[in-house]
Computed example of a mutant assay.
Amino acid sequence: MKPLNDDLSDVGAKELLTPEDKVMAHSGITLVVINSVCGCAEGMVRPAIRRIMADESIKKPGSVVTVFVGQDLDATTRL
């Protein structure tokens, strides 16, 4: 699953791996990305997040976090 996680962490998304990971540790907007191995994530979600984060003309959220459904079960449940 590392390459699928790297798609998002490479553009600044923080992976939530445990329920103790801080999700809303700042004021402002947090973009939460639910990552998975399904075709929707591969074909649409991860490419869209990479494009948003790379586009200098788009205002970015204060933070971007991601959980991997089916892998980080406790973090997903907490979120």
Score class of each variant (00 low, 15 high):
residue 60 K to E: 07
residue 25 A to N: 15
residue 40 C to P: 08
residue 70 G to D: 07
residue 78 R to K: 14
residue 5 N to E: 15
residue 28 G to S: 06
residue 32 V to F: 06
residue 75 A to V: 01
residue 71 Q to V: 11
residue 51 R to Y: 09
residue 15 E to A: 14
residue 53 M to W: 06
residue 22 K to H: 08
residue 24 M to Y: 14
residue 36 S to K: 01
residue 78 R to C: 08
residue 44 M to Y: 11
residue 59 K to V: 13
residue 40 C to R: 07
residue 58 I to C: 06
residue 69 V to F: 12
residue 20 E to Y: 09
residue 53 M to H: 05
residue 3 P to R: 08
residue 13 A to S: 08
residue 17 L to D: 15
residue 10 D to S: 15
residue 26 H to S: 13
residue 70 G to H: 06
residue 50 R to D: 05
residue 30 T to E: 06
residue 74 D to G: 15
residue 76 T to N: 07
residue 17 L to Q: 15
residue 3 P to K: 08
residue 25 A to L: 08
residue 10 D to R: 15
residue 37 V to L: 10
residue 51 R to D: 10
residue 61 P to N: 05
residue 73 L to D: 15
residue 35 N to W: 01
residue 40 C to Y: 09
residue 76 T to M: 09
residue 71 Q to I: 08
residue 36 S to H: 00
residue 31 L to H: 04
residue 70 G to N: 09
residue 31 L to T: 05
residue 9 S to K: 08
residue 45 V to T: 14
residue 21 D to Q: 05
residue 54 A to W: 06
residue 75 A to E: 04
residue 41 A to D: 10
residue 40 C to A: 10
residue 6 D to I: 02
residue 40 C to S: 11
residue 37 V to T: 12
residue 53 M to S: 01
residue 20 E to R: 12
residue 35 N to G: 03
residue 54 A to V: 02
residue 67 V to R: 03
residue 58 I to H: 00
residue 21 D to L: 00
residue 46 R to C: 07
residue 30 T to M: 08
residue 2 K to W: 10
residue 28 G to H: 02
residue 26 H to G: 12
residue 30 T to R: 13
residue 15 E to S: 11
residue 58 I to A: 05
residue 10 D to E: 15
residue 8 L to S: 00
residue 61 P to F: 06
residue 59 K to F: 08
residue 58 I to R: 06
residue 77 T to S: 11
residue 74 D to L: 11
residue 30 T to V: 14
residue 52 I to N: 01
residue 55 D to S: 08
residue 26 H to L: 13
residue 79 L to A: 06
residue 19 P to C: 04
residue 28 G to P: 03
residue 66 T to P: 02
residue 28 G to T: 04
residue 62 G to Q: 08
residue 19 P to F: 03
residue 33 V to M: 04
residue 67 V to D: 03
residue 54 A to S: 12
residue 59 K to L: 13
residue 38 C to Y: 11
residue 79 L to V: 06
residue 44 M to F: 14
residue 35 N to C: 05
residue 2 K to C: 06
residue 47 P to I: 00
residue 61 P to H: 02
residue 69 V to T: 10
residue 43 G to S: 04
residue 5 N to V: 15
residue 37 V to P: 08
residue 42 E to F: 09
residue 6 D to F: 09
residue 31 L to S: 03
residue 79 L to D: 00
residue 57 S to T: 15
residue 59 K to I: 12
residue 52 I to M: 14
residue 67 V to C: 11
residue 65 V to F: 01
residue 29 I to F: 12
residue 40 C to N: 07
residue 66 T to Q: 09
residue 57 S to L: 07
residue 19 P to S: 11
